[in-house]
Simulated assay, not measured.
Amino acid sequence: MDVKMMIQPTPNPYAKKIICNLDVKTTGKITLSTPEECAHIPLAKALFEIRGVTQVHFFENAITLTQDGSVSWDVILESARKLIKALLPEHNPDFQSPEEKRREQLSPELSKIENILDRTIRPALQGDGGDLEILKLEGHYLTIRYEGACGTCPSSVTGTLAAIQSILREEFDPHIEIIPLQETVEQ
């Protein structure tokens, strides 16, 4: 099968979204931050071998690559296109991610938060090549981690964080405080 791709910028200068004509993840999403995490996913493992790539995010028919700034996007995207063209036709998009397994075991409170975020916040984040992961809820404190393009994006700790907190205060708990774990990119 002929693989077609379209590259989209994201709000994060260190991340690019590659939209494909084939699925990379049929259900759910996955963010991989080390080559060791993707030993069971040959496409992700190969993308991590591109110099400068620090994170690979799969969602539906999109791959978001995050880089450390040490290599030009032209070089990274040329290598990525070749790998995707070669490996995507044999890639299995039906693999289950740890996130999907985790969601099956959530408390009612965390399940409600996930559903609110799925409906309100995640579509915009995923449209920009990112997402977020709920890490824990302790009292009124919700710890999250941004994924994909959102992981190192400056706006994730300002406008996006304020939007998440506002929606969750309105729909879940008026006293909730969001604590983001933020990745950094060395410049």
Rank of each mutant, 00 (worst) to 15 (best):
F95Y: 14
V53K: 14
I113K: 08
Q96D: 05
R103K: 03
N61W: 01
N115T: 13
Q67C: 14
T64L: 06
D68E: 04
A46Y: 14
T31V: 15
V71Q: 07
N92R: 02
T66P: 15
Q105C: 04
E36W: 12
F59V: 02
V53S: 09
N61L: 03
D94E: 11
A46D: 03
E90C: 07
E36K: 03
R122H: 01
H91D: 15
F58D: 01
I76V: 15
E37L: 03
I84W: 05
P42M: 13
S107F: 00
V75Q: 07
I63C: 11
I84K: 09
T31H: 10
Q67L: 12
E99Y: 06
L117C: 03
A86F: 03
R102G: 00
E36N: 10
D74R: 11
L106K: 02
I50M: 08
I113V: 14
I30K: 02
E100S: 01
E99N: 02
E104K: 00
I76A: 08
I121T: 15
E90A: 07
D74K: 09
I76T: 05
S97K: 14
L83G: 07
A62D: 08
E60F: 00
V75F: 12
L106S: 10
D68N: 13
K82F: 01
E37P: 10
T66I: 13
E60P: 00
P93V: 13
Q67D: 15
V71T: 11
V53I: 09
I30Q: 02
S72F: 14
T64D: 09
V56E: 08
H91C: 06
N92L: 01
L65Y: 08
L88C: 15
S97T: 06
S79W: 00
L106P: 00
I116W: 01
L65R: 03
P35H: 06
E99W: 02
